[in-house]
């Protein structure tokens, strides 16, 4: 009797264990296989993305550059390229890597998914800015083409991601990075920051930490071979040329540096002072931006500092007949004209 019970227990335990291990799609084995499959696909897609991006910006992708971008050995990279060629995703014509149409489409899809996901994180979530790239790097391999289209529709078919990169359309081609870098700008020439290269990540994080964002206006104050001193939306920064190389800009011919310097931030105003709004900083995005616009902080609006909280923050502003309290970080996002300021 007892032996019989033990046998029964052993069988039940064995059944449970094998169910845990071999259950279709949920078992340990199936999950391990899925993870392996995802890792393989990620490597393939990353390689295609690298080749596509190099092509778009006029560089030549090589075995070494692929190994570097994917952080694998050249031997593994060679195996990967062979695998891609076997799937008719690319060819080696005269020793040069060329994408086949299917490979190009796959690469475009990954870039599109990446940039759309970054836009989504920026516009519709509160995820911190320095996590966008990292999260999109994972998500780009999980979204199917259909889901990507759906996401684009939900975001209102954006054309640029939060870093200023063009999002390739459904039919699309990939736009290269044609704007000049901050290194090539003459002093005292107003420019618009169009793009911050998000790779390598360490450099990108440094630029972010300085508060630089696409959409900011800037001009170089002085330039030497070792450093670039420049003004950007109210603050002075110093960058080594190797970092400045990752900041893309385009000229703003209609401005003089003096026009830019005159702009100040709402947080700089004192109690009782009054001025006009010039615009919202580009660092203000998504729901936060829409909220401020809806409250009436649009260009041309008169703003007056009404009162300051006994704790020093927030500050209440009178805007279009109503009184609205904003925190210091928010008032730091609203550009006002200092030349216009007056006391009441």
């Amino acid at each position: 009797m007892k032996a019989g019970m033990n046998t029964a227990y052993t069988i039940v335990a064995g059944l449970v264990a094998s169910a845990v291990a071999f259950w279709p799609r949920r078992g340990i084995l199936a999950r391990w296989r899925q993870a392996q499959e995802l890792a393989r696909r990620t490597r393939r897609e990353d390689a295609l993305k690298h080749i596509l991006k190099s092509e778009a910006s006029g560089r030549v992708a090589t075995l070494q550059s692929i190994a570097g971008a994917l952080q694998i050995t050249t031997g593994n990279a060679a195996g990967l390229l062979e695998e891609l060629a076997a799937h008719d995703l690319l060819t080696f014509e005269g020793g040069r890597l060329r994408l086949r149409p299917t490979g190009r489409e796959m690469g475009l899809h990954v870039v599109r998914a990446h940039r759309l996901w970054e836009s989504y994180l920026a516009e519709q979530t509160g995820v911190a800015e320095d996590e966008w790239h990292y999260r999109a790097e994972k998500q780009e391999h999980l979204l199917s083409p259909a889901q990507t289209l759906e996401l684009a529709a939900r975001l209102g078919h954006p054309t640029r991601d939060p870093h200023g990169d063009a999002i390739p359309g459904a039919d699309g081609t990939l736009e290269g990075e044609q704007d000049q870098s901050l290194n090539g700008v003459e002093p005292e020439t107003p420019v618009l920051i169009t793009h911050l290269e998000d790779e390598p990540e360490t450099v990108y994080r440094q630029l972010m930490a300085l508060g630089l964002r696409p959409g900011m206006r800037a001009f170089v104050i002085e330039r030497s071979t070792t450093r670039i001193r420049f003004w950007a939306d109210g603050n002075e920064h110093v960058l080594a040329p190797v970092l400045a190389e990752n900041v893309s800009v385009k000229p703003l011919p209609e401005f003089r540096p003096a026009d830019l310097v005159e702009e100040e931030y709402l947080s700089g105003l004192k109690l009782g002072e009054r001025t006009r709004v010039v615009g919202l900083s580009r660092a203000c995005r998504g729901p936060e931006r829409r909220r401020l616009l809806d409250l009436g902080f649009v260009p041309g609006t008169l703003v007056e500092v009404d009162m300051v909280s006994p704790a020093g923050d927030p500050t209440a502003y009178r805007v279009r007949g109503s009184v609205v309290a904003l925190r210091r970080e928010q008032a730091n996002l609203i550009r006002v004209n200092s030349g216009d300021a007056e006391s009441t």
Partner: peptide
């Protein structure tokens, strides 16, 4: 709650 949307505004009515 890190990823949730956050915007601050406080209206002070008359």
């Amino acid at each position: 709650l890190k990823g949730e949307v956050s915007t601050f505004s406080l209206e002070l009515p008359p």
